[in-house]
Amino acid sequence: MSAVTSVELKADARSEGFFSALAPGARAALFALAATAVCLLFTFPVFWLVLTSLRPASGVFYVHRGTEFTIDNFHEVLSQEIVLKALFNSFVISTAATVLSLGVTATSGYMLSRFKGPIPNTWFSLIYIFRCVPYVAWVLPLYFVTQQMHIFDTYWGLLFPHVAVHICFFSWIMKGFFDGIDPSMEYAAMIDGCSRWGAFWRVAMPTAVPGLTALAILCWLYTWNEFLFALILTSHETPILTVVMAQFVHELGMEWNLMSATAVIALVPALIVTLFGQRYVIRGLRI
């Protein structure tokens, strides 16, 4: 009888995998080790970045054995007008792109979730096709288009492409959020005196607030971190933080210390936004 039981146990262990075959203590230890390794993997570059930003130019290559630390790098980058302008521009573009994108993606996602027919189908196909086009392939045509429209190197010249990309990417996520909301709530609202639009605006939208918040944060971070569009579609008139950061690599060499200091400054708003909406971001990423 006991032989049979042990065979069954072994079979169970095999079927559930290596991890469950371990003793509970060993399992916990292994999990802790893996979690620590992942944490280190993600936090070490940030730690190194902060360390580099606090070192003088001469010490950036000897971070691990230097003892001299300074905040001069921050003073220097913040005294450069272009960096301040870029910070402001990046903030304005990210916020404006978020507001505009959400306005469109909310209605677009709602339409994709709730309506059937030729218009939603065509819209869905269009978004799908645009998503299939490699991101890089858009940049050069967009450069010519913005030149032709005389919006190159302006807020609008960068805003429109960002909003277009966000609509394609985030309409899907928004559709997922609305799919998760019971449509009978809107039907109830329509019976309770709302029009179709009223049911969307007064019932579906407030219910989708967690989803909208997650999208807003993702959208803001995406625009804040974006480099390629900013590099090609802007110039001296509208400097953007990611491009300005890259300009510390020039013909005379690389100013790692200044670049790191700018990167740390750029991290702060992103960190605040992420910490503020961590719960929503996780929810958004799950979809």
């Binding site: 009978s184 709530m185 039907y187 109830a188 019976i191 019932v203 407030p206 219910t207």
Partner: peptide
């Protein structure tokens, strides 16, 4: 001028 009760209640969650 009707009122309706739904299977899953359809109460406004917010």
């Amino acid at each position: 001028d009707i009122a309706m009760v739904f299977q899953n209640y359809a109460l406004y969650q917010h």
